[in-house]
């Protein structure tokens, strides 16, 4: 930031320095403007969270109770959702790291049609989420296009229960669908980082006799690792909040996650305290994950240094 002396006294506000006490009215106005969104967040996000906490811990008469907690934590649906909610970010982020990095390295060398291929690569993310999920449902359902293609290939016996409840394949397909939607983001972040590297690094390594894979492994990947880690940290936090994908593809019972279980408690049973407990468990998990992600980012910066 530039720091300079104000050039003219009087009605002037110096845009480069924090306010001095001579300009109280304008300062108050500016403060109000800046605080307005904060008030908005408070009213529309943090206050509801507080009420959720209250609803989870009080009964109808208003007294403190742990009855809701025991009821929810004893519900098998909720326990299963904990497992899935933890599984999804782990597998998803792993997939996105490998595929996103791989795609970025591959596109790095693309000479022609970069804009076109980049647009093609981000299509899953550019589509509205529900539309993307509808396309995937059309493809993967039992009577869907993938099974139809297999049927054309080898008959009805070749069809697979991609989304059949109770099988690990179902979980894998759901996670794949979700990961594929977001891999373009990781890909774009890493590709941008790659393109900002001076080409001279690559040239120097090549002149020193390194082969293409050595260049990728020893030069490119370490240099983009910080950007990749930041992207993955953000993605892990997002993956924990997964909601629509399992809901639309297989339904709450087949693959419960904390978000869809909260929705299920509210929409099907109108059990608001239970819904709030599921939601708050998610919020707690997010807090933990965000702190971990922040720590990873910090470590990434140290790594680069």
């Amino acid at each position: 930031m530039n720091h300079r002396e104000p050039t003219t006294p009087g009605r002037l506000i110096d845009p480069t320095r924090p306010f001095s006490t001579n300009y109280w009215t304008q300062r108050r106005l500016v403060f109000l403007l800046a605080a307005a969104p904060a008030v908005g967040y408070l009213l529309l996000q943090f206050w509801p969270l507080g009420r959720a906490l209250g609803s989870a811990l009080t009964d109808e008469a208003g007294d403190w109770t742990t009855a809701h907690l025991t009821r929810v934590w004893g519900d098998r649906l909720f326990v299963r959702s904990l497992g899935y909610s933890l599984l999804v970010p782990v597998v998803s982020v792993g997939l996105e790291a490998v595929v996103g990095l791989g795609m970025a390295l591959w596109f790095y060398e693309l000479r022609r049609g970069r804009f076109f291929w980049r647009t093609v690569a981000i299509v899953p993310f550019a589509l509205p989420e529900i539309v993307y999920l509808l396309t995937m449902k059309l493809v993967f359902r039992q009577n869907g296009y993938l099974n139809s293609a297999l049927w054309h290939g080898g008959g009805a016996d070749w069809t697979v229960g991609w989304l059949e409840p109770g099988r690990p394949l179902m979980t894998l397909v759901v996670i794949l669908v979700d990961a594929w939607r977001v891999t373009p983001i990781v890909f774009l972040i890493v590709l941008t980082a790659l393109e900002q590297l001076p080409v001279s690094y690559v040239e120097a390594a090549r002149i020193d006799g390194a082969g293409p894979w050595q260049i990728r492994a020893r030069v490119l990947v370490p240099l983009v690792l910080p950007a990749l880690l930041v992207a993955l940290a953000l993605r892990a936090v997002d993956a924990f909040r997964i909601f629509a994908t399992p809901l639309v593809l297989v339904g709450v019972e087949a693959m419960p996650v904390l978000t869809s279980v909260a929705y299920h408690y509210k929409a099907s049973a109108n059990d608001v305290p239970a819904a709030n407990i599921a939601a708050l468990t998610l919020a707690l998990g997010l807090l933990v994950m965000s702190l971990t992600a922040w720590a990873l980012v910090w470590a990434g910066r140290r790594f680069r240094a």
Partner: peptide, 21 residues
């Protein structure tokens, strides 16, 4: 930074108590 934090909270967590409000 507050804006960043708000971005992290998932809709479904807030939607349920927000409906009550």
């Amino acid at each position: 930074s507050l804006s960043l934090i708000s971005r992290v909270l998932p809709p479904i967590v807030i939607a349920i108590p927000l409906t009550a409000i």
